[in-house]
Design a protein around this nucleic acid. Structure first.
Lengths: 221, 221, 221, 221
DNA sequence: TATGAATGAGATTTCATTCAT
DNA sequence: TATGAATGAAATCTCATTCAT
């Protein structure tokens, strides 16, 4: 059809209800994965009918996009450093970033969907249109850039092991943190404990010193 | 008897072709996720029609189950230690396990589906019937048990930091390794390099010594 | 979604059945108009279920496009002149064209949908995607071009009234002929009779001589 | 009585606003066709919400019916002849009718919907209830009757070719005129020019004299 | 072994319509 | 007069599955 551009559904004007819709949708997406999540189930949990969802979002993809947009915009607020932090060493800034990110993960609303780069399987952006996907990917690049620069700085200043591949390390750190929600259950240990463990792990993992080599397994050694 | 009990897919008679089918299916499952993977696409890649696929597998779930079974059975071969290794210290056995597992990951056929516990999201077993799921989960427990025991031994013997939660560490190590396929591209670095980096990371991460605490951020320190 | 291009449904390989499907679809489109035509009704008339239509065409638009493509390709065969006709005067060629086109209209399969330019309301191409629409419009331009050139030639050679707007006349002639199917019922008069009447009408309408002017109504004249 | 009989839309109380609503509705119907026209779009163009539209019209069909009624009532004013015209010959009365109708077409408000018989496809009355449809069809018959009588008179008096089918000619003349809006663009030619061309065309087309026959194509002639 | 032709259940979309406020 | 929030029916689309050949 040649015809004119339709506007946003009116439901998005009521910010509170719109937020509830996105909240529920993100939960269902998180539990079932995007393709297996049904609008039927989202509608049921909201206490409305399938057709009524149309008042809020024209398509299933609209829901996903809006959730991802919000999650990423929120994530972008986590890479901003206060003036004090800006003056610290890369090692300290990295530690602070890990703590900010973990704290953000815990607080954020659309907690079910990963808000950062690295994306464990079922990478949500696969289900967006080209246009929308690149808008989200753009935000991811920005997040990645922050961590990448931090690590490179640390290497240049001798705080981090320069033998490592900076991009690889950055991806690993994001995955390490974001995957937490996939297995974390508050019973056996606290979020703070995990955060401390990550800080230690990253700190030790990036410390200068040569990598273990295959030869270390050599019985002759 | 004339009434037909559910029988094995007939395709299993031709082991070679059956293997090809599972290979292709695992690729499509890996690329799209289980719900979004269509039998149409699997058939197309095999060069046959949708209907023909039913000669090999009676349901879509059959394909998934068979792939998971094979992947886990293969994984179980990776936790067997040769006599030499059995006599080594936990630290050395852990290093050897990481190398065996990473080597296995690279070699295994159904490379797209995680063959171990830890299950980053889209946990494949979600899509199996209860019966089949518990058969796979059983194998997972066995894999997990191996690593868990190894880590506990190391802690008891003072090689690993006893402050850590052994189960958590075990899960983390599996996730660390299995997620590799999600981002690994052979261009920028070799599989061996990654393996060495994991060995180092795990080795340093588990080494005795207290965790970094929030107070380390205290500017007064 | 990023994913791969799906192929044509298999049903299109059976040319005979595929033709029947298009035939029925064109009838329903013709009777109801495109938006009001339901796949349900098309399927019913074919004696299959709604879902089965997918075996032949992936979308409703696919049906429309294929029908329009065929109707236009057929129409393009009608503007080809045999060697004898090519040597005739524009006036004679125009008469022959009208007879060929009217004959074609009567014979063509997807008779319900206009196969030429001019398009009375509910212009079918409105319902196609941009890409497909321009492919059909391209064929329309070719048809239009033929008649336009014919008329201009006739004007240049003094056979037709040069005061007329050639494009307007061409559109009018196409509409005149294509609209026939909208009201023609074989009872009261024959297709041949209509054809003769059109030939006469066009012939007299294009003949040189000044147009009637408002002043002709002036009682003083 | 407490049970509510179907009543006129309340909006009819404010005649001005009601007219605007019908105006916009007729535009949207004209652009999209009745089934594809959405109340959403009509409401948007009116600057109100979908729900508000129901203050004016209780159903979508109400809008269509009211528009058709007005368009036909207006058309009926165009077949009234002033005393001077009544005394003219059929040929002159026909010319005057064409000029009145074309003038009316240009002036009328609900310009998008054909206000006369002959109905090029997507015949609007198809979408009305039986009752309403016959009310509109009644008006159409009256319009048709006027032109039919005029033509028959002319034939009886030897001004028009008696070989022609009067009803067919009447339909053709209505279609000729009403279709104008489907392709008319003010750029390349004026409405007056078109009108003159129609007068000429009809005048020549109806003039006595035998129709062209197939034999005229005979090369031997 | 394989295919062609179909089914039917469920998913997403669309939209005229309702109604309390 | 108008709106916001819904509904429900019907339409399109998707796809695992069946089965005669």
């Amino acid at each position: 059809m040649t015809h004119s551009a339709p506007m946003e559904p009116r439901g998005t004007l009521n910010e509170r209800r719109w937020g509830e819709v996105l909240q529920i949708a993100s939960e269902v997406f998180g539990e079932r994965g995007y393709p297996a999540a049904s609008l039927q189930e989202i509608a049921e949990r909201l206490g409305i009918t399938k057709g009524s969802l149309y008042y809020y979002a024209r398509t299933k993809e609209d829901l996903l996009f809006e959730i991802l947009k919000r999650a990423h915009d929120y994530a972008l607020t986590l890479i901003r450093e206060d003036p004090l932090t800006q003056r610290m060493s890369p090692r300290q800034r990295l530690e602070r970033f890990i703590r900010r990110w973990m704290d953000g993960l815990q607080r954020q609303q659309y907690t079910a969907l990963s808000g950062g780069p690295g994306g464990s399987r079922d990478s949500w952006t696969d289900f967006l249109s080209d246009d929308r996907r690149s808008r989200i990917i753009g935000k991811r690049h920005e997040l990645n850039r922050y961590l990448l620069d931090l690590i490179r700085n640390g290497m240049a200043q001798g705080e981090f092991n320069p033998q490592l591949d900076a991009q690889h390390v950055a991806s690993w750190i994001f995955i390490l943190m974001n995957d937490t929600r996939l297995w974390f259950r508050a019973k056996s240990m606290s979020w703070d404990y995990i955060t401390n463990w990550y800080v230690t792990l990253v700190s030790r993992g990036l410390a200068p010193g040569s990598l273990d080599r295959e030869s270390s397994l050599d019985p002759s050694s």
